[in-house]
Amino acid sequence: MSTSLKNRLSAGVQTLGLPGSVGVAALLLAAALAMLSHHWDTRSARFQAEADQISQRLRAQRAAGVQESAQAPATQSQWQAALPPAAVRQQRLADLLEIALRQGLVSSRTEHRLSVDAASGLERLRVSMPVSGGYAQLRSFIEAALLHDPALSLDALKLRRASPQAAEVEADLTWSLHGRSDLAQGAKP
Rank of each mutant, 00 (worst) to 15 (best):
residue 18 L to Y: 10
residue 96 L to K: 06
residue 182 D to L: 06
residue 185 Q to F: 09
residue 3 T to Q: 14
residue 143 E to P: 00
residue 116 V to F: 01
residue 9 L to E: 09
residue 70 A to C: 03
residue 2 S to D: 12
residue 61 Q to V: 01
residue 97 L to Y: 05
residue 32 A to C: 08
residue 114 L to D: 03
residue 55 S to Y: 00
residue 158 K to C: 00
residue 50 E to K: 09
residue 83 L to I: 05
residue 35 M to V: 13
residue 95 D to A: 14
residue 72 A to L: 15
residue 44 S to G: 06
residue 82 A to H: 02
residue 19 P to M: 00
residue 147 L to G: 13
residue 148 H to A: 15
residue 94 A to K: 12
residue 179 G to E: 01
residue 119 A to N: 02
residue 158 K to N: 10
residue 34 A to V: 08
residue 62 R to A: 12
residue 179 G to W: 00
residue 100 A to T: 08
residue 110 T to S: 11
residue 21 S to F: 14
residue 134 G to L: 12
residue 149 D to C: 05
residue 182 D to C: 01
residue 96 L to A: 05
residue 13 V to E: 13
residue 65 G to Q: 15
residue 178 H to C: 09
residue 75 T to W: 11
residue 115 S to F: 04
residue 177 L to I: 12
residue 188 K to L: 15
residue 162 A to Y: 06
residue 146 L to P: 14
residue 39 H to G: 04
residue 60 A to K: 10
residue 155 D to G: 03
residue 135 Y to I: 10
residue 62 R to H: 11
residue 36 L to T: 10
residue 141 F to R: 02
residue 146 L to Q: 13
residue 90 Q to M: 13
residue 136 A to R: 12
residue 133 G to Y: 01
residue 51 A to R: 07
residue 162 A to K: 11
residue 18 L to G: 00
residue 134 G to P: 00
residue 19 P to C: 01
residue 168 E to S: 06
residue 86 A to W: 10
residue 28 L to A: 11
residue 176 S to P: 03
residue 61 Q to K: 06
residue 15 T to S: 13
residue 137 Q to R: 06
residue 122 L to D: 02
residue 22 V to S: 12
residue 4 S to V: 12
residue 186 G to L: 08
residue 33 L to T: 03
residue 49 A to S: 09
residue 74 A to D: 12
residue 141 F to T: 05
residue 56 Q to A: 04
residue 123 E to V: 06
residue 140 S to P: 00
residue 58 L to I: 02
residue 159 L to W: 02
residue 48 Q to R: 13
residue 139 R to C: 04
residue 10 S to P: 08
residue 176 S to W: 07
residue 129 M to T: 04
residue 160 R to Y: 04
residue 16 L to I: 11
residue 182 D to I: 03
residue 125 L to Y: 02
residue 22 V to G: 04
residue 82 A to N: 11
residue 127 V to A: 05
residue 166 A to E: 11
residue 169 V to D: 05
residue 30 A to F: 08
residue 173 L to N: 03
residue 95 D to L: 15
residue 4 S to A: 15
residue 11 A to M: 05
residue 142 I to S: 09
residue 159 L to M: 05
residue 155 D to C: 05
residue 124 R to D: 08
residue 43 R to A: 10
residue 156 A to R: 10
residue 35 M to S: 13
residue 168 E to Y: 03
residue 33 L to R: 04
residue 21 S to E: 10
residue 57 R to P: 00
